[in-house]
Amino acid sequence: MNSNYPIIVRLDGKKAVVIGGGRVAERKVTRLLGTGALITVISPIATDELKRLASIGLIRWRVKSFSKEDLEGAFLIFAATNDNVVNQTIKEAASEQQLVNMADDPDGSDFHVPSHFQRGRLSISVSTGGASPTLAGKIKEQLESQFDEQFEDYVEFLFSARQRILQEVKEPSRKREILSAIVSEEFLKSPDREADFLRLLHNKRNDV
């Protein structure tokens, strides 16, 4: 079996089509909200939540059964009906350049949606390749406890500190040394990591 290739994709402005209007489709749509994707749901019926999202303009709901034309321009396609034949038809109708996820056929899907959580810029995902979403969820819960809310501010600090280091420190060895130093328990727990960082940066610069 070929290994999967994990990536994080920017969906802003890209079309995502979800075929199906039940709970599975609702979960797919909920995960897409906030990504900037242009979400279209194709289904004669829909859950109350999907109807609500359509009514406030967060998604587009086309009240119809699936046809091949529904996939035009789609970047991601979610076959989320409760009919395996329809889901397979959707997969066959997609072009080679389109990525399809089938809710009832992980092995036949082009991609899987991992169990995921966010701490600001920190994004952590767990996947079993469709083998056991339940196990992926349990591991995610463990990681959520390990990487709690304090990491949101910490990772934001690391982002801004890295930009400054890259701009102000010219010697490669010094640069690596400072970048390694700020990724530590001391900086994570520091009550004033900005001041600690400035002292570190100042000292390193004076040593050059």
Rank of each mutant, 00 (worst) to 15 (best):
R31C: 00
W61N: 09
S132P: 07
F78M: 00
E152F: 04
E69Y: 14
V183K: 00
L32C: 00
S55G: 11
V63T: 15
D104Q: 14
K175V: 01
Q98I: 12
A79F: 12
P191N: 15
H202C: 06
Y5I: 09
E96I: 10
G22I: 07
A161V: 03
S173L: 02
K189G: 04
H112I: 15
K204F: 08
R62V: 15
I124H: 05
E168K: 05
L33A: 00
I45F: 11
H116M: 08
V126E: 15
F75S: 03
G108L: 08
I45S: 13
L53N: 02
I45L: 11
I19N: 00
I139V: 15
F117N: 09
A94R: 01
A181P: 02
A94D: 06
K15S: 10
I182N: 00
E168V: 03
P133G: 06
L166Q: 09
S190N: 09
D83P: 05
S3R: 11
Q163S: 07
P44M: 10
E168F: 03
S115C: 13
D196M: 12
L71P: 09
G22M: 07
E144C: 15
V208D: 15
R174V: 02
E69F: 15
S180I: 02
M1Y: 06
R10K: 07
P114L: 12
K170E: 02
V41Y: 05
